[in-house]
């Protein structure tokens, strides 16, 4: 799907909603000489919410960013192993990174809307794919904003700067921007850590609804959040995947002592 040769089965075609499986095979990541991920393998289930937890610096964000190759922009980044999406290794030479990122959307820690209008923010992903049809763009923008529950709030201000929105609205806008290009997978890197509790609750509800259509992987430092919304949880510590299980199981009856220490708040 992501490979160039299959380019024609378009990115926009939502009828093609397959179940996307993510898979990491013995992945190691270095920043210069520093080994940041020490050989991690895991399978991530489609149409579920998978949470990555662990103390800061444990490699959970680095690991998340492997799935849309955002680490490529770090100068000293180097990796070994495979990341497969539906069977294709996304670090293969013939992978088109831009197409990959249309499939795998990302929401960042701090809301980062473009310094443009609300409309332009949501339409951006479609426009750079060369879509010019005004009516289609308009519809997608409306649809996406409705999906995140922002439509009623901004309906009349579509041409106003996105930077004028509140933090929580900005983050929902960023999610709408991601949804507009109809990805199958959404990566979220601590999406609520910069937000107040009310905005956080709204975003959590939204994430929960989105799981019907999307495979969601979320990094969070907030264990309550992980236990509230995720189906599976992976605990990372110092570049290793320590434990990965159903969320219920991991939080109530962890296998490993390190996991238990962490979730009971003894460190991190």
């Amino acid at each position: 799907m992501i490979k160039k040769k299959k380019k024609q089965d378009s990115i926009i075609d939502s009828s093609l909603k397959r179940k996307y499986k993510l898979q990491a095979k013995n992945v190691k990541v270095w920043y210069g000489d520093f080994l940041a991920i020490k050989g991690v393998s895991m399978d991530i289930k489609p149409n579920k919410i998978t949470a990555f937890i662990g103390p800061s610096g444990c490699g959970k964000s680095t690991f998340l960013r492997l799935f849309n190759r955002m680490n490529d922009y770090v100068d000293s980044f180097r990796m070994e192993g495979e990341i497969n999406i539906d069977g294709d290794n996304i670090y293969d030479k013939d992978i088109n990174v831009e197409l990959l990122r249309k499939q795998v959307g990302m929401v960042f820690q701090k809301p980062n809307p473009f310094p443009k209008s609300i409309y332009e923010n949501v339409a951006y992903g479609l426009k750079i794919q060369g879509i010019k049809d005004k009516k289609f763009l308009q519809e997608r923008v409306e649809e996406s904003l409705k999906q995140v529950g922002l439509w009623n709030e901004v309906e009349d201000d579509l041409n106003k700067s996105a930077l004028a929105l509140s933090g929580g609205q900005q983050q929902r806008l960023c999610i709408a921007r991601t949804l507009a290009v109809e990805p199958s997978i959404i990566l979220m890197d601590e999406p609520t850590s910069a937000l107040d509790p009310i905005s956080t609750a709204k975003i959590e509800d939204l994430i929960y609804q989105l799981k019907e259509k999307y495979t969601i992987v979320i990094v969070t430092h907030n264990m309550q959040q992980a236990s509230r919304i995720s189906d599976s949880t992976a605990f990372f510590y110092m570049g290793d995947l320590i434990e990965y299980d159903k969320t219920n199981k991991l939080f109530t009856n962890p296998e490993k002592e390190q996991t238990e220490n962490y979730i009971t708040g003894r460190f991190g």
Binding site: M70, Y73, E98, K102, Q129
Partner: peptide, 11 residues
């Protein structure tokens, strides 16, 4: 963050 967002959108 603007660059990140744009690249992550597939630009």
């Amino acid at each position: 963050s603007v660059r990140d967002a744009s690249f992550a959108m597939g630009a």
